[in-house]
Design a protein around this nucleic acid. Sequence first.
DNA 1: TTGCGTGCAAAGGTTTTGCATGGCA
DNA 2: TGCCATGCAAAACCTTTGCACGCAA
Lengths: 147, 147
Amino acid sequence: MQNSRKSEYQTKQKAQVLAYLEAHAERHVTAAELLHALTAQGTPVGAATVYRQLERLEAQGLVRRYTLDDRGSACWQYGGAEAKAGTCHSHFHLKCTCCGTLIHLDCGHLAGITEHVKQDHGFTIDPARTTFYGLCNACAETRKDAE
Amino acid sequence: MQNSRKSEYQTKQKAQVLAYLEAHAERHVTAAELLHALTAQGTPVGAATVYRQLERLEAQGLVRRYTLDDRGSACWQYGGAEAKAGTCHSHFHLKCTCCGTLIHLDCGHLAGITEHVKQDHGFTIDPARTTFYGLCNACAETRKDAE
DNA sequence: TTGCGTGCAAAGGTTTTGCATGGCA
DNA sequence: TGCCATGCAAAACCTTTGCACGCAA
């Protein structure tokens, strides 16, 4: 494996995609949304290019790809500095199934889970892939009122 | 909201789909596999019917729908008696990203997670939706050798 | 100038939907 | 008999791929 990477061009489209993901780092973004938003911005980017850029960004570890079990549409989220530094490997993520917010959870209690499961259950959890689904405070309240 | 459900017919196709899911309860089954297997069995079922049955079974809580982030293909797994009895709500699931095995994890230590996160982080985890991804013992060994 | 990145269009696959027919109650 | 479920086919949808052109280095 080599760290050296082939010459990579700096294009407007690449900058646009990355900029949008960065600007909405707290949310997950679908390919369709990205496509539509860039078009609305007056800097339309082809679908193929969007997917290719996302694929590359994912390979570089700058964004993470999620798959909501709604339909077959995937979504991406900017991990940026954290993902680059690799700090996200040591904690878990909470994702609200209602509003889609992703919460980074740095907590010693939670960190012990990985060890516990490995020791007692013989299963190596991959925190980078594991996400807790549930309801955030705001959505829990809203739903409580609704029911 | 009514608990009474409309009259539901008992058809061969429904029995076939459920039987196959039950017979492979330890695995996740894709729609394509289900379709192919039933055809091979000599009891072919239309694609539309398979999807409609899966949708219904999911609504009834008998099977769970997963989405592997590989491609846009979903997969289902029988939860059966456990899902019916609702016991799966109190524990978490471990899923091997390598072989796809699903492990039910009943553990007091893990059960405390939900409470802890709710208390300290204001987030209500839904164990029924949350799955830990990682490597099971077998796959961890295999991968260790490979690398 | 070189060759990577882009755009368009077409292909690929999965899942959904409409409509006429068949089968369960 | 009445109505639900099925099957077929077509559509919708997301994503990938091929190829020629444009643009960054």
